[in-house]
Design a binder for these strands. Structure first.
Length: 114
RNA sequence: CAUGCUGCGUAUUCUGUCGCCGGUCUUGUUAAAGACGGGAGGAAAGUCGGGGCAACACAGGGCACCAUACUUCCCAACAGGAAGGUUCUAAAGCUGGUAGAAACAGACAGUGCCACAGAAAAUAACCGUCACGAGUACUGCGUGAUAAGGGUGAAAACGUGGGGUAAGAGCCCACGGCAGGCUGUGGUGACACAGUUUGCGGGCAAACCUUAUGGGUUGAAAGGCCAAAUAUACCGGAAAGCUGUUGUUGACAACAGCAGAGAACGGCCCGUUCUUUUCCGGGGGGUAGGCCGAUUGAGCCAUGUAGUGAUACAUGGCCUGGAUAAAUGACAGAAAGCCGGUAAACAAUGUUUUCCGGACACAGAACCCCGCUUACGCGCAGCCCGGCAC
RNA sequence: CGGGGUGUAGCGCAGUCCGGUUAGCGCACCUGGUUUGGGACCAGGGGGUCGAUGGUUCGAAUCCAUUCACCCCGA
């Protein structure tokens, strides 16, 4: 249960960019850094080069939705920043984003082991 | 029927599951939870005009700069809108109507420019025509007059006819064209019509410019309020030292000695004041951050009245996004419309029906309005061009 | 949110203010010469919707309006 905690301060983003480890795929880049808190927080960055505001809003909502579906599997105590890469090179539907995010988070070792 | 343009309308709907952001109420110390009810557009876009709002500035006048430019009206205001005038275009000889377009003040205030071609591109004599003169008597020369004719050019010096002349010319006359002034009539006005008079050597002001009118500057990251951590002005209180040796990276500790920090007032002492260091308490400004600004407004809807119309007025009803790494969504399934394909009927490249397929146009409020411009799916109506069938 | 600039040949730039000859320059490319061959050098040549659309004008890369893309600055 509980809400999705969001990163909002620019300094937090800058700290994660500098200190965190990251993995990139065609659609998504994820930066991860432990935060010594009880919950995991996420931030989303979409560049202006991605497209106009309608496209940027849509990819951001899809990222939030994908994370919401994966939320119960993620270990607590991390800050994660997702960066959307350029479109038109991949399928922008939900199941695709979800699969890619699941792959990335597993690679970064922040998913719970069963 | 299709394309394009113009105008008007519209901007998918329903069900299920899971979510996001405000508001009101209840519970809760807080965090938060529950219930109820709401949550993108015609352009929210571009940021091109104009305002509201806010801070600062401001005696008066001039220059400079910027913007605007037919008339009247509407509007809070505008480079916006409505109605009208003039000119041009469709359009062909004229007239009338229709539709569309117009950055439609000024080129006898001044300066400047007009490539190439052409004799000449602006107060035009190259050829030609005419007169006179000289002589070497010629397809020639010189002086002067002359815009009727001359292959050009985007543009060539009012048009036609007649008179006139050495030859000519609005030089004169008739008819016509254009421009300005004056008078009259109609109109709020731009202007139109009629009369009269003066005059006819271009164009470019989206060249400089002139005239008239308007413009204070900066923008919500404006502006106002609250206010961590750290350092600290200032205020109050308390304490105070120096030297040497030993240990120690150092802070510091122990021992011994001197003395009661330093400066000023003063001959000296006491005393007073100031300075320096540390600690405690208070406290101003200000940073991170937060709150207000900020969602009730030139508001929307309906009806009526006035007006050709934009619009105004009256009455009644309604409250309708408020985020800030930024909510208004995701997935699944139906339905309508549309698009593409498919088959049949009918006179058609189409219509109607059957079946199949389709990540359904442009696009996301960021202080708020009014406009403009641009992007764009579908439906209806009108028009231009084109095609097909009867 | 506000302000400013750029767009011309494959690349880098002039020309735009003040409209008019065939839109030039360097590198690159092609052909020929030179050399045993290559480079360098010499001679010649090709290559442009002047970002797009519309307007003003006799005439537009240039002037005006709209629009597209990119870059920079302030906070």
């Amino acid at each position: 249960m509980g809400r999705i905690h969001r990163l909002k301060k620019n300094v937090e983003f800058q700290r994660i960019y500098r200190k965190g480890s990251y993995i990139a795929t065609k659609a998504l880049v994820a930066y991860v850094k432990p935060n010594n808190l009880k919950e995991t927080r996420i931030g989303i960055t979409v560049s202006k080069k991605y497209g106009k505001s309608v496209k940027r809003n849509r990819i951001r909502r899809l990222i939030i939705e994908s994370y919401r579906l994966l939320k119960d599997k993620v270990k607590p105590g991390y800050d994660i920043v997702f960066v959307a890469r350029k479109p038109d090179t991949y399928d922008t539907r939900l199941y695709n984003i979800h699969a890619m995010m699941s792959y990335i988070l597993d690679k970064l070792n922040v998913l719970k082991r069963d």
